[in-house]
Write a protein that binds this DNA or RNA. Structure first.
Lengths: 361, 361
DNA sequence: GCCCACTATCGAAACGATGCGATTCGCATC
DNA sequence: GATGCGAATCGCATCGTTTCGATAGTGGGC
């Protein structure tokens, strides 16, 4: 069912003119009753508001106001993939929480714009048809390049979290590489030499079996997702001999399957460096299913520092300031809308030792 | 065409009139090039689109279009409490996923409207100032009554999930009571006689210590939250002697503390019926902390059937069709926007036996 | 070659509110 | 009672698009 914005007749609504007529003032005066600026007698204002109440006027029409002011007061939040998946992703949610908090403070509405819908491809139509003053790229997605031109044409303020690294997008970036390097060195210092890496799928419509075993630095340059690439590179700098497996999808289960493949080798790794926390949880589960005890028999690490209250244990990982990066993105939106030109920033990360890592047996 | 006057932001934009001028047609013809209806030569359309591309016209201004059509194509999703907390709540998220899916299908945008912001009270201003065609109450909140009049005045289509039970709101309701009754009977049939109930806080700004022990039916009528009330009533019908404790907040930790109080009694219950899954997880944790084994020493049940992949075990609970209720709410929005008058529905729930319940020792 | 029936295009009037510049009002002062 | 002045109110153009009714153009039938 596709609805058309055009065929339906406008709802008969009460307008400011009606209020003005009832209150026996001009519409411009009636308007004054609702604005902050301009001078109007308290008596007149009261009369106008009374008239408004009498005929059930709900206040100035937001659309008309927007047309006049050129501002909608709405920020589009662009999500790679589907809204559903984003909502299942603790990293995205933590960022979103920070972003919401900041956007709340500057009194702008938050419009969710998924780049793809559940039932297939999201037409650019929805994206283009929405009255937004600015957009925030909440999660990094390769698919964004296609929609950038249209946003530039609209002269929208653009803020990105971890990308896209494109002209005109103010960025909140994360120091992924150095964080992952610290973590890898920690694992090496524990004594590990045989490590496996479980990485996120680089395919857009990822779903299926895990990829083959590959050398850690195989084809690194061809990975367009900067986040994935830089994290791998950091691991490679410490463990040039590591083996990597690409999970078949982005969900927990894919991580479990991929990690399982690593664990089922004749000579299995003593440490699995998962490229994010969800994959690490999958690895923990794969270990549990095989009676492998963590951290005694296996070290498992993640990345992100997501809040996983249900997990019941504390992952050794690298903590990103997830909430903070949302806040910063929100702040940037505010500055851009106010006419400023905030500069991009790179936020630091912090290694966190949990109870999933230890020396090899 | 520079038109930055004084205070208004300088957003000099390219308009349809500019395109028309360049293509040497009238603006009405230029408009035709972007519409589905109306007749226009393919040649002319091509010329217009070429002109548009040349001067970087990004397509019709959504705000102006909305003003003319009386429709914004945006649905407001109203969240009780803060956006942040909603995002941490698996029940709300599952519902949201279904809702998003349905709203995607009818090509409407999704605007998040939290009733309260992180930093304090949400002014009605934001809510009132947003150009929405309809609103969906995603989660039940006592605070909604205050904003209903304004929505009625705006003649917005209104759809609610589990409330508010108010005139003009089309509802997707859940058969809470009978589901909870089935679950309670199951626990009774297992042989349990001494049961404790952990319930959600009824305070809006809940945070603090758990409430006192109370009889299950103490003051039931004074609980305005229908969901909480009906679930409790159902338990009371099976276990008139049950003791209830109100958690101090809505988070996991509050559930743990409240359940801990029940477990620390001299004679502790053999079963804890938590009023939702998160509280049940809290109860599991309280039990684990005390070396009480579930289900051998204690039966713990929840309500909702939320997807908790990180938990690692399967809660005995009542499954709501969470995704489905979101879908249904979305469908209702579509029908209302199309001029229909869908009727409210009540969705069934299903008892699900997990591995957290068993006979008392 | 004339008239008719289309159809592509155009002009102008909305949609509902805002804000500039002009006008009127109220009132104190001379 | 006339004058001056600030404050309150008003009229009108405007934001960018859509759409209705009017007009010009095209081609076919006879």
């Amino acid at each position: 069912m596709v609805k058309s914005m055009t065929t339906t007749p406008a709802r008969t609504s009460v307008t400011l003119a009606d209020v003005a007529a009832l209150a026996k003032v001009s519409t411009s005066t009636a308007s004054l009753a609702y604005r902050r600026t301009g001078s109007i007698t308290e008596r007149t204002r009261a009369r106008i508001l009374a008239a408004a109440a009498e005929i059930g006027y709900a206040g100035p029409n937001p659309t008309a106001r927007s047309l006049k002011s050129g501002r909608s007061g709405i920020v589009g939040i662009i999500i790679a993939g589907t809204v559903r998946r984003a909502f299942q992703n603790p990293v995205a949610m933590a960022t979103m929480a920070g972003l919401s908090e900041a956007l709340d403070d500057i009194d702008v509405g938050q419009l969710l714009l998924s780049h793809r819908s559940e039932s297939g491809d999201r037409s650019a139509r929805l994206l283009d048809g929405m009255p937004v003053d600015a957009v925030v790229f909440l999660t990094r997605g390769e698919e964004f390049d296609g929609i950038l031109p249209s946003m530039r044409a609209r002269r929208l303020a653009m803020v990105g979290v971890e990308g896209p690294h494109e002209e005109g997008v103010t960025l909140v970036d994360i120091d992924d590489a150095s964080g992952m390097a610290v973590l890898a060195r920690h694992v090496r210092d524990l004594g590990h030499r045989r490590v496996g890496v479980v990485m996120r799928s680089t395919r857009i419509d990822a779903n299926g079996p895990p990829g083959p075993f590959e050398a850690i630095d195989a084809d690194l340059d061809s990975i367009s997702n900067r986040t994935i690439r830089e994290r791998l590179r950091a691991v490679a700098s410490v463990f040039p001999d590591a083996v990597r497996v690409e999970a078949g999808g982005r969900e927990l289960d894919s991580g479990e399957i991929a990690a399982g493949r690593l664990l089922d080798q004749a000579v299995r790794p003593t440490a699995i460096l998962a490229q994010n926390d969800m994959l690490a949880v999958g690895a923990l589960r794969a270990a549990a299913a095989r009676g492998i005890e963590v951290p005694r028999d296996l070290t498992v690490t993640g990345f992100d520092g997501a809040d996983l209250p249900l997990l019941g244990r504390r992952l050794t990982t690298v903590e990103q300031p997830l909430h903070e990066r949302g806040l910063q993105a929100g702040r940037m939106v505010g500055e851009l809308l106010a006419g400023g030109a905030p500069s991009s920033i790179v936020l630091p990360v912090a290694f966190r030792e949990g109870d999933t890592s230890g020396p090899p047996r």
